[in-house]
């Protein structure tokens, strides 16, 4: 899987690169509009992370170029600007997602995975983790091929965890991913504990080979047994 990161902030760029390489992606980077354009024209990527405020141009124009070239690379816009107009413009130009800085790295991870998954799925969108199979479109979970009943939030949490397996997922990241942005300053995220507790109970009851562990002070981690 090849990912292009177009980001002018060197530290941010390095950080994303390092993280994505850890997730076994092939990562290339561009720090400005022109080098980004060069790479977009010359190569195909599974996913492009696009910062829209670049020193020598607007990332949205890169998106337009991509469209003009009839390329089908998935694009996630990352922007420091929480502007509805930009978001609408970006999505209209064919971006697959829009992420506002600052974001949790686990959130970025989940978004990249679902963008890639959506494009490659061909109708088969099964996440598999040991003896747990998740069909995202049909919202079905099978453990040892036995269906497990999860409520909407438990299901979303499980998907978020499987996309970030063996990473520490912070409570804030879970809250934002499942409950939405507005909860971001909801003060204490302890309320997600009850959902996690139920999910954990159900996983154990069905002898799942995965488990959710608490990481004191940070959040949770999905681990393989």
């Amino acid at each position: 899987m090849k990912i292009l990161v177009v980001e002018d902030e060197p530290e941010m760029k390095e950080l994303i690169k390092q993280f994505l390489e850890g997730e076994n992606y092939v990562v290339e980077t561009a720090t400005n509009f022109h080098s980004g354009l060069d790479k977009i024209v010359s190569y195909d990527y599974d996913c492009i992370l696009l910062d829209i405020s670049l020193p020598d141009g607007n990332g949205l124009d890169l998106l337009q170029e991509l469209k003009n070239l009839d390329k089908e690379d998935s694009v996630i816009i990352i922007s420091a600007k929480d502007s509805i107009e930009d978001k609408v413009k970006g999505l209209n130009l064919g971006a697959d997602d829009y992420l506002i800085k600052p974001f949790h790295i686990t959130e970025l991870n989940a978004r990249i995975k679902s963008v890639i998954r959506r494009k490659k799925s061909d109708g088969r969108t099964l996440l598999e983790l040991e003896n747990v199979k998740i069909n995202i479109e049909e919202r079905l979970v099978l453990i040892n091929d036995q269906p497990v009943e999860l409520n909407r939030k438990e299901f979303d949490i499980l998907v978020f965890f499987t996309m970030n397996k063996s990473r520490i997922v912070s409570k804030a990241a879970i809250a934002e991913n499942i409950w939405g942005d507005y909860i971001d300053q909801a003060n204490d995220f302890d309320f997600i504990y009850s959902q996690i507790k139920n999910l954990r109970k159900k996983l154990r009851a069905h002898n799942a080979e995965i488990d959710i562990n608490s990481v004191y002070g940070m959040g949770y981690k999905l681990s393989l047994k």
């Binding site: 902030e9 530290e11 941010m12 950080l15 994303i16 420091a80 800085k101 600052p102 790295i105």
Partner: peptide, 8 residues
Amino acid sequence: TPLAIGIN
């Protein structure tokens, strides 16, 4: 941006 970098 620096905040994002810090958190990540």
